[in-house]
């Protein structure tokens, strides 16, 4: 029998994400103040966006007083992966997610929150999701604020080593299921391989933004795998991420 996920379960799962966010948003705050952006602007950006790549890109457009259209295109491309994540996560929601609540909670879907939520065996309810997003949102905003007002108190070398934290979390999410399931291992390797092509081939890395490259890698590798190795109903349940 499946247990119901609670608010407390959510808080517990959200803690490591929040700690990771604290360091990244701190770096965002430091970077913003180095560019001469007032602390209330950078903090407000973090509170209204809750995304790393999109904010770093958006901040540089704001500092340069770039065009609205440039902002629109950049953010659409970088954040388009959330579109795929939202679709995937929408399949795991229980009845507690009414339409009004979906309008609200959708604002908090990030790479890490998505990864943790979608990896749950049980369906997701609003109590759990509220717990899950609480610390990440709080610490993302707080980290930006602290970074912006305290600037460079931490040695650069420490900030630099914190940069790998979120990637290490991603690795911790994808490796165990890759060991357990060959088809998962294939999709991970295929996606990583395509991603390396976008990263290392000059023509591609000069013309394709990293956010858009992620979307292409995801679609190509998932479509190939879904065609070659469609999953069975029981298998989805058994090792749902």
């Amino acid at each position: 029998m499946e247990k119901t996920l609670t608010f407390k379960n959510g808080i517990k799962d959200g803690l490591p994400i929040g700690l990771g966010y604290l360091s990244v948003s701190f770096a965002f705050g430091v970077g913003a103040s180095a560019l001469g952006v007032p602390f209330f602007i950078s903090t407000l950006i973090s509170m209204t966006n809750l995304t790393s790549a999109g904010q770093f890109a958006g901040l540089s457009i704001i500092v340069a007083l770039g065009g609205i259209l440039e902002m629109l295109i950049t953010e659409t491309v970088i954040n388009s992966r959330y579109f795929l994540m939202s679709i995937a996560l929408s399949q795991k929601l229980d009845a507690s997610f009414t339409t009004a609540k979906r309008f609200f909670y959708s604002a908090f879907i990030t790479d890490e929150i998505f990864a943790v939520a979608v990896s749950k065996k049980e369906d997701i309810n609003t109590n759990y999701f509220r717990g899950l997003i609480f610390l990440p949102y709080l610490l993302w905003s707080l980290g930006t604020f602290l970074g912006a007002i305290t600037g460079d108190i931490l040695p650069t070398i420490v900030i630099s080593s914190l940069g790998i934290a979120l990637y290490a979390m991603f690795i911790a999410i994808i490796i165990p299921p890759s060991i357990k399931s060959v088809s998962v291992l294939f999709v991970v390797l295929l996606s990583a391989a395509i991603s390396c092509v976008f990263y290392y081939v000059p023509v591609l890395n000069e013309n394709v933004s990293s956010g858009f490259a992620v979307v292409i890698c995801t679609l190509v590798s998932s479509v190939v795998m879904a065609l070659l190795f469609p999953v069975k109903e029981e298998k989805e349940k058994e090792d749902a991420v």
């Binding site: 795929l84 994808i174 991970v188 996606s191 990583a192 590798s221 998932s222």
Partner: peptide, 15 residues
């Protein structure tokens, strides 16, 4: 089913 793994892998490697 495959998208979550693919997204995370593409974002992680080689970045």
């Amino acid at each position: 089913y495959y998208i979550p793994y693919a997204v995370l892998s593409a974002m992680t490697f080689p970045a």
